[in-house]
């Protein structure tokens, strides 16, 4: 048996037999998927509300249009009161063909939205029966409605890959150094690169299993993830991502001595990076400085690439830049880690 195979097998056995490690690698990320995927399911853009009193063709048409969140209110007085308080942006009364819209002038934006939509519906009803001169076709760009799960899945998957990559590399090296396994390897006729590459292969294997379990669960009905056409492009992206995070783990291992210190440093790297890279919350409305900071983090690129191929249905062109950036990180960080690396504690 070659050194490469036997060291890989040793690492796999060590990993599989470590229950706590298994929990944090496979089940901990699933907990996040459950929290973000199920609890925040209705976190999409909120529809503007409209209070209605009475009934008639205009109100029926508004309900059909689904552009506004139409709520029935018992009396005009109660409705107007709610508009005054700011609970509703506007109220529409319809009685015997007379339609009246009353809105809160203090809330121009929402009131404007309501006015536009109601005006549109009324116009269409007025024109009904006349020949149609223009037909406006409408279609959303995404093939499904943009449910949060479509963004939550690639984000949390990227974070869990980063986490297992950094921790896997860092803790293995520090434990081997502290327990003098590294010294033993140094005293054996083996190439250090063989040792490293076997551990890297195991990390990639763990990452693939993580991704399969994770995406598999997200595809089930309660979560309802819909994979985009070229989802398999996530595989090469995953490998380059793990390379980068493995290198970061090596760097963390090169300046820490105990497993506790290493875990602390790894957390200090991974957690802020996860928040700043938009893996838990989208960065769409983030301030500009945050946008710049996140562009300096490898996780941002893995996350962007994963979202592009898993949810947005983009192709190869969407992962080229992320992969190149991740490889660049790998080269630079590995070089620094190699410089700082020590075989022994003292």
């Amino acid at each position: 048996m070659t050194v490469f195979t036997s060291l890989s097998i040793a690492a796999i056995k060590g990993f599989v037999r470590d229950r706590v490690g298994l929990f944090f690698t496979f089940f901990f990320p699933l907990m996040f998927l459950i929290i973000f995927g199920l609890l925040f399911t209705d976190n999409g853009p909120k529809q503007t509300k409209l209070g209605v009193v009475g009934d008639g063709p205009v109100i029926t048409a508004l309900r059909k249009a689904e552009a506004l969140n139409v709520t029935t209110v018992d009396s005009v007085d109660a409705a107007v009161d709610q508009v005054r308080k700011g609970d509703l942006p506007a109220v529409l009364t319809e009685r015997d063909g007379a339609v009246e819209l009353r809105f809160a002038a203090s809330d121009r934006v929402r009131a404007g939205t309501v006015q536009g939509i109601v005006g549109n519906v009324v116009n269409q009803l007025n024109l009904a029966g006349q020949p149609v001169r223009f037909h406006l076709a409408q279609q959303p760009v995404e093939d499904t409605s943009l449910k949060p799960i479509q963004f939550v899945t690639p984000g949390i998957l990227s974070w869990s890959l980063a986490s297992s990559g950094v921790f896997g590399a860092a803790l293995t090296i520090v434990s081997w150094r502290r327990k003098q396994v590294l010294r033993r390897m140094r005293l054996a006729p083996v190439n250090p690169l063989t040792v490293l590459s076997s551990r890297l292969l195991v990390s990639v294997g763990i990452g693939v299993v993580q991704a399969i379990i994770f995406i598999g669960l997200a595809l089930t009905p309660p979560f309802g993830l819909k994979l985009a056409g070229q989802w398999w492009l996530a595989a090469p992206l995953l490998v380059t991502g793990l390379l980068a995070f493995f290198a970061i783990g090596m760097l963390a291992a090169s300046f820490t001595k105990t497993e506790e210190a290493t875990a602390a440093v790894a957390n200090l790297i991974v957690l802020p990076m996860a928040f700043l890279s938009g893996t838990f919350f989208p960065l769409d409305n983030a301030p500009r400085w945050l946008e710049i900071v996140s562009k300096c983090l490898p996780l941002r690129y893995l996350n962007d690439g994963m979202t592009a191929v898993l949810s947005r249905g983009q192709g190869v062109e969407a992962i080229v830049t992320p992969m190149l950036v991740l490889l660049g990180f790998t080269v630079v960080v590995s070089a620094i880690a190699a410089k700082l690396f020590t075989w022994e504690d003292s």
């Binding site: 048996m1 070659t2 050194v3 195979t5 036997s6 060291l7 097998i9 040793a10 056995k13 060590g14 037999r17 470590d18 434990s175 327990k179 003098q180 396994v181 010294r183 033993r184 390897m185 005293l187 054996a188 006729p189 083996v190």
Partner: peptide, 30 residues
């Protein structure tokens, strides 16, 4: 290196492996 053997501290083993697996793994290095 193949001609010398060095015994280190009692704890210098791979994580979670049995006695035979430790020997097989260290043996494979040679």
């Amino acid at each position: 290196l193949p001609r010398i053997g060095v015994q280190l501290q009692a704890s210098s083993f791979f994580d979670k492996l049995t006695a035979r697996e430790q020997l097989e793994t260290f043996g494979s290095l040679y």
